[in-house]
Design a protein around this nucleic acid. Structure first.
Length: 518
RNA sequence: GCCGGUAUCGUCUAGGGGUCAGGACACGUGGUUCUCAGCCACGGGACCGGGGUUCGAAUCCCCGUACCGGUACCA
């Protein structure tokens, strides 16, 4: 039998990473087991649900690398996949339940219910619906309904019974029905309640495995009872522990980024977020063999760095942890760093572009040479960075140069106060006047050799601080790579789509101008 | 309150009646690369508490405790 799994978000905001993880676990199981993955939208809360949220959630899921076989935008034979388009289906089933006596109309007012509730609470009783309308005569009930009296439909919960279900991650879970008041199936406005709609949808969509957050575990017995009322066999359940913040409280806004979109905006790669999310509450079994597919072979932790399909191949519900997990951004960063380093230059360019635009380093559409330049400059810039959003800073020294500020750097100022410094800087500028631009590492080294020769500098000598000054960086990517990158950007034909860049020759001259004459 | 769930380094976890309780992230120290990142080596760091069962408990059982969820005409 082919496994059918679903993710069923409510379109009431952005996709939270906790929900993204739930979606991911469903997807991993479906993809790993040759199952079907369904995307259903639970928009019965008409006030809070919006199409914008729905579109955003779909985009976030796709960005992360998830796809679905049936769903709201791709269709499928068991649709519609939006609950708001299924109201007639729910209604038909309600008629059945009312007819069979498994459900009944309840005319109790909200005020009355609230009063009962308070009284029970005050008496130290668990607050449950008292069952006032349970015994209502069918004709009576129909008459009052016809007269327009507002009513909800409630499930008739069998008294004094255990409801038992097998949870694929937690084992046997038992609830007693005396703990459960007759739940509302259909609200007085005719809209089905969550616990009712899910059951009908999962049944009609032939869902075999319901994998969802732990917050639904207490709802499960109610749903099992609905399955029973219809004479249906419930699907298999698996309840995932929640994702917490560093303070062990459920992950929320005050912990910083919580939505997939925010992590995207902060410069995390989709494959990194997916990989990391998979690692909260699940761990791959140690393979006896060396991993063939780890992006960074042979490094510590490579066992945990697995691409999507490999995650899916290894994913087992039995290996899912029972306890809640803390979202650790430091580890996410580590994962991200590895994927960043493994990224092909063209892809890196694509991913970095939005961040470069935001930093105004890329002004408009890129010319082909500018794109090539980026593809060659980005890998060294991204090699020592946690997130894409830090890339513009790494490129800062290429696009921005301020000789005075550079020379004000404490360490450099000391080194360059030597009289010979000015001569070295000038020699470099003069050399670059006649020599070809420093388009690559070799050209740069050749120029360095000539300058050292001419000025009598040995080893690193005064050439090194000058070289550092050119980049304006005390630290950063390899200088031999960075310096030529500056000149390549400076010599790109204009208009090139990149912000203007000052060449190394001009930088050297500006530096020389500020140094005391030897 | 009641019901349900959970409990191994700071974090994610492996393991599970007898182990030096293993790994990863983070952290510290040293090495390496002209700097950073990286990489290499080394290091500190955990079985929630109390009772049982047992020759032996972190592991099994019970009781606590803590945390999380639910207790809705929200999903």
């Amino acid at each position: 039998m082919v496994m059918r799994l679903r993710f069923a978000p409510s379109p009431t905001g952005h996709l939270h990473v906790g929900n993204a993880r739930t979606a991911l676990f469903n997807w991993l199981l479906a993809r790993g087991q040759g199952g079907t993955f369904i995307l259903r939208v639970e928009d019965t809360d008409l006030e809070r649900s919006t199409r914008e949220s729905e579109a955003a959630i779909l985009e976030d899921l796709r960005w992360m690398g998830l796809d679905w076989d049936e769903g709201v935008d791709v269709g499928g034979t068991l649709g519609p996949y939006r609950q708001s388009e299924r109201f007639d289906l729910y209604h038909t089933h309600t008629v059945t339940l009312l007819g069979s006596g498994h459900a009944y109309r309840c005319f109790c007012s909200a005020e009355k219910l609230e009063a009962e509730r308070k009284a029970q609470l005050a008496a130290g009783q668990p607050p449950r619906y008292a069952g006032t309308c349970r015994a209502l005569d069918a004709h009576d009930s129909a008459r009052r309904q016809a007269a327009g009296e507002p009513a909800v439909v409630r499930l008739r919960v069998p008294p004094n019974r255990d409801v038992v279900f097998q949870d694929l991650v937690r084992g046997t879970v038992t609830f007693h029905t005396d703990q459960i008041g007759d739940p509302v199936l259909v609200r007085s406005d005719g809209i089905p309640a969550y616990n009712y709609a899910v059951v009908i949808d999962d049944q009609l969509m032939a869902v075999t495995h319901v994998i969802r957050g732990e917050d639904h575990i207490s709802n499960t017995p109610r749903q099992v009872l609905v399955y029973e009322a219809f004479g249906w066999t419930p699907p298999a359940f698996a309840h995932l522990s929640l994702v917490l913040g560093p303070d062990h409280a459920p992950l929320s806004k005050r912990h910083g980024a919580t939505s997939v979109a925010e992590f995207r905006a902060r410069g995390y790669l989709p494959e990194a977020l997916m990989n990391y999310l998979a690692l909260i509450g699940w761990s791959p079994r140690r393979s006896k063999f060396k991993s063939q597919s780890s992006p960074v072979e042979g490094e510590p932790g490579a066992e945990e760095l697995l691409p999507a399909l490999e995650l899916a191949r290894r994913f087992r519900l039995e290996d899912v942890s029972h306890s809640a997990g803390v979202f650790d951004e430091a580890k996410l960063s580590w994962v991200n760093r590895h994927y960043l380093k493994a990224l092909a230059p063209a892809r890196l360019t694509e991913e970095a572009l939005p961040f470069l635009r935001q930093a105004a380093l890329v002004v408009d559409d890129l010319t082909e040479p500018a794109r090539d330049w980026l593809a060659s400059a980005l890998p060294p810039a991204a090699a020592s960075v946690d997130r894409l959003s830090e890339v513009p800073d790494r490129l800062h020294s290429i696009f921005h140069f301020n000789a005075a500020a550079v020379l004000a750097t404490p360490g450099l100022a000391a080194e360059l106060s030597q009289p010979a410094a000015r001569a070295v800087a000038l020699a470099l500028a003069d050399d670059l006047d006649s020599a070809p631009p420093l388009l690559d590492r070799d050209a740069f080294r050749a120029a360095a050799a000539r300058v050292k020769d001419r000025t009598g500098q040995k080893g690193r000598g005064l050439f090194h601080p000058i070289r550092v000054a050119l980049t304006g960086l005390a630290e950063g990517p390899e200088l031999d790579v960075l310096v030529p990158a500056i000149d390549r950007a400076a010599h790109l034909p204009s208009p090139n789509g990149l912000a203007p860049v000052i060449s190394c020759r001009d930088r050297a001259r500006q530096i020389a101008a500020l140094l005391p004459p030897g």
